[in-house]
């Protein structure tokens, strides 16, 4: 992924109320980048899921939100970084219904379906970086589908 970064915001994730800030910042930047309402909502929801993971499983960390430009036009890339224990089995964690924090088990696997690109880096020594990317117009036909 070689998206040239233009605008970038970093939001710390230390407590519950920080999730609200992450959602608001992602929403605001998605609006400015020309996301339609449905695309906005999908990305904000994915960000909310992943930010909560960062808080609950990673022991806190940060979200990095940046505007990217790719072949499909403008988009938003959000990375969730923590220095927690890491994810021992990424494939397992990505399966529907897998839950460790008492959720519905749809956080990680579900967020993957809400975005166009999804990447997890988790080292054996701990620390996780989940990056999701969504395009303003995923069905780009030159003009927006809204």
């Amino acid at each position: 992924m070689n998206h040239a970064a233009q605008e970038s915001i970093r939001v710390p994730i230390r407590k519950d109320t920080d999730l609200t800030v992450v959602r608001q910042q992602v929403r605001a930047l998605a609006q400015r980048t020309g996301f339609g309402l449905v695309q906005q909502t999908k990305l904000v929801t994915a960000a909310s899921e992943l930010a909560r993971n960062t808080l609950l499983h990673g022991g806190g960390g940060a979200a990095e939100i940046r505007v990217v430009h790719g072949q499909a036009g403008a988009g938003l890339s959000v990375s969730f970084v923590d220095s927690g224990p890491g994810i021992p089995d990424v494939d397992l964690a990505l399966s529907d219904g897998y839950s460790t924090a008492g959720g519905l088990g749809m956080g990680l696997s579900g967020s993957k379906r809400l975005v166009q690109e999804f990447e997890i880096e988790s080292g054996p020594d701990g620390g996780t970086r989940v990056t999701v990317t969504s395009w303003a117009d995923p069905y780009s036909v030159g003009h927006g589908v809204r």
Binding site: V38, Q40, K42, T45, E49, D96, M106, G110, L114
Partner: peptide, 13 residues
């Protein structure tokens, strides 16, 4: 709202 419904269904909920 429509966008919320689409997103929840996509999430699998």
């Amino acid at each position: 709202r429509p966008a919320v419904a689409i997103t929840l269904v996509e999430l699998g909920l």
